[in-house]
Design a protein around this nucleic acid. Structure first.
Lengths: 147, 147
DNA sequence: GAACACCTTTCAGTATAGTGGAAGGTCAAG
DNA sequence: CTTGACCTTCCACTATACTGAAAGGTGTTC
């Protein structure tokens, strides 16, 4: 199997596969007499593993480390479980952060509906986003609207 | 006010402030006779606006665009509202994606607890993450454990 | 033998929001 | 007069996962 066949069978591109090889995610394949990479079926599973790892948010580096353990002759299962746990904790935190941000956004939006456009002065750039105005004198001088 | 004072007053660094200036987020400040940047109080509000925008997930480019509208003499409030709405939609989607990923992760983890370590064969690299094994013959030949 | 699809390599660029460091100028204290 | 803390500019680099393009070799078909 040549590189573009592997690519189409795994939903990637030849470019990406060469990149994975450089990144240590795929073993250096055999070469045909003309120098073309020649893959056999197992490469498909490899690429699928990369995609499976990515699907659960692992970085290529993490995936590569799991591959390395496997290629070392050991089962990477316990390392994989640790990664899954770390990933779960990480995602949980990111969800929490995003929900907090969403709450802030919604509050900002709700507050903005009560604001009068005419009240929006240059001091805070925009009162929708930046609630606190700057009342210093030099500011009023410097940011006076040109037109 | 010199750059490091502005930095400490806004919780940033001089480096970041120069970067913001280059990025069009801060107006080019006046210079003292020795070439030092000289800020007045309004710069604090500017930087705070940048931070307020970042806090709700706006990119520096989006924040810069709002600034530009303001510096153009118009109130950026309606543009800001649009950004807030877009941001809300975006965050909502990202939360949804993360929750889906979290569900997958949890399922993978639960399934892994029922798996026998001895069943983890090289074909799938790791059965914890990659469920489907590769059964092709050439694979078994090529990935035979060395040790 | 020319066209076209495919393969090879290498270098560089994408996006984001900065950070690090070098080389040099300035200023106040001791 | 030197030390140290600032300031200036500019260039390069961080991380991540690719992508684009150039320049050339290969293989099949018409």
């Amino acid at each position: 199997m040549k590189i573009s066949e592997l690519a189409s069978r795994t939903g990637t591109t030849p470019k990406t596969l060469r990149f994975y090889e450089d990144a240590g995610l795929l073993p250096t394949p055999e070469r045909a007499a003309n120098g073309y990479r020649t893959y056999h079926g197992s490469a498909i599973t490899r690429v699928q593993f990369v995609k499976a790892g990515q699907a659960v948010g692992l970085t290529l580096a993490e995936i590569r480390d799991l591959m390395a353990i496997r290629d070392d002759g050991r089962a990477p299962c316990s390392a994989a479980m640790e990664l899954l746990d770390a990933q779960l904790a990480d995602i949980t935190e990111r969800i929490r952060d995003l929900q907090a941000m969403k709450k802030d956004l919604a509050a900002l939006r709700a507050r903005a509906l009560d604001l009068d456009l005419a009240d929006c002065t240059p001091e805070s750039v925009c009162h929708v986003i930046n609630p606190g105005p700057c009342t210093c004198q030099e500011h009023r001088e410097s940011t006076r609207v040109a037109s």
